[in-house]
Nucleic acid binder design. Structure first.
Lengths: 153, 153
DNA sequence: CAAATATAGTTGATTATTTCAACTATATTT
DNA sequence: AAATATAGTTGAAATAATCAACTATATTTG
């Protein structure tokens, strides 16, 4: 097998492995009453504070029609508040409401707990090594792409 | 921030990063007429040769009712063949048909091409480093879990 | 400036995907 | 032989994703 192919193969193998891992983590987590997409959106709103739909769309790569409907629901549940931007009449600024923050915190805590459980069986040195690898991967991929889709965390 | 928390945070950051990356890769790839789940199933059948529905379910973590329907479609498209096991009347052995192999090969080639494109901008030394990290991550996670969900590629 | 074009977000119709429980059939256990 | 377990199918219902048309506001350009 060519050198290049071996590298491609290893990346694809990792992608399969990690797809499965993420799937398991997400399934396990989402016995809550919110969907994965809703949870990711709440995360983005929390991380940004005053974000726009467009930002979330670009961050999560979902359809704007879909996002619009999810937003409507999140507002109906009382988790977010929306107000028109004062500088641009087209955009709407989204924030977490107090109860949205509470839900976010719960999801966040559950997520922390889950990862904690996952790594609790890993010797400490390996945990360090694990995260070093993760940082390294992000760095290599981000650096190699100045105006590439893969940018941003 | 506690040491433990820093590690958990880094893992979660990586998970968000990689979720997005995988999403982009999958979206890009699946302008083909097959869904991601169908493509993953074709991969599993190809990797196993004579697999059972139960194996695929456990490998991909999807619902058995859903799998059953997808299988019905794949058979309708002529991509797979199913025959009853001779040793256990309940199980059905699944294989790729010639045209299923063709489709698999196309998807496989597109996937290779895509990863190739992705890494083509990365200096060769970094590519090696990237895959070394990926292998390391798999190793650490797999080793730490003898009878854990995360096992298997 | 006015017309054309672009951007932000919403809506409705359609399709696809998921979920879940009930069901058939065969195997295994007791 | 009866009870229980496993493999897979089916149907109904709920959710989610897709896509094009649409409103409203901004920006560009001749």
């Amino acid at each position: 097998m060519g050198d290049k192919l071996k590298i491609v193969d290893e990346i694809r193998s990792f992608n399969r492995y990690y797809t499965k891992l993420l799937g398991l983590l997400n399934n396990q987590l989402l016995n809550s009453k919110y969907s994965l997409t809703e949870a990711r959106i709440l995360y983005e709103i929390h991380a940004g504070e005053k974000v726009t739909a467009t930002q979330i769309i670009s961050e999560l790569g979902i359809d704007k029609g879909q996002l619009s409907k999810i937003m409507r629901n999140l507002e109906k549940y009382g988790l977010i508040t929306r107000k028109a931007s004062e500088t641009d009449g087209r955009v709407i600024l989204i924030s977490l409401s107090p109860s949205g923050k509470k839900v976010y915190n719960e999801l966040d805590a559950a997520s922390n707990q889950q990862i904690n459980d996952m790594i609790s069986v890993i010797p400490e040195g390996n945990q360090k090594q694990l995260t070093a690898c993760m940082q390294e991967i992000k760095m290599i991929l981000i650096n190699s792409s100045t105006d590439d889709v893969r940018k941003r965390s």
